[in-house]
Design a protein around this nucleic acid. Sequence first.
DNA 1: ATGAAGATCAGA
DNA 2: CTGATCTTCATC
Length: 193
Amino acid sequence: MKQVPRSFYRRDARLVAPELLNKILLASDGRAGRIVETEAYCGREDAAAHSFRGPTPRSAAMFGPPGHLYVYFTYGMHWCCNAVCGEGEGHAVLIRALEPLAGLDTMRARRPRVRGDRDLCNGPGKLTQALGIGKAHDGADLVKGNRGVRIVSDGTPPPRDPAVSARVGISKAMEYPWRWFVDAHPQVSGRRR
DNA sequence: ATGAAGATCAGA
DNA sequence: CTGATCTTCATC
């Protein structure tokens, strides 16, 4: 497994998001999945971003150093995780779906209602539940992995031609095509509109 | 102090 | 399509 250096994240989220595809999100106890769907959120120029109006207590991590995690709670029950990008401009990449790779038993235990393994991590709230990511990981360093979460590469390059679409579930700035996913994994990628 | 909206999910 | 569930932040 190769390390993904901090310089990888120190760029516009729209450049990082498609390149995060096929990298691996790793949790402390061996649970891991391949990233197959991402979305870019772009600070002050992006009305759909939590960072749009500048830093708040919730979005503080988005303005922090790149290569750290921004984790937020939404809809009264779900955690979502992002890789912070850029250099303090409030850019981040939302990780929306994983192809489960390891620790599937623990994932199933975390998501007891799920029938098939393909529903384990195919959504931003699902994958955090499967991997056990929550408030404790807000601000965690994905390069050092000192809070048990990191992103690595197994050498698989990002897709040469990732699928692109509008972002899912937003009500502002819907016109931007800032969602990328691995088209070759229809069974694990989230919704496909 | 208040309330509306929310980067979602599961089940009918 | 709807209900669940509760934090966050802008506004009053």
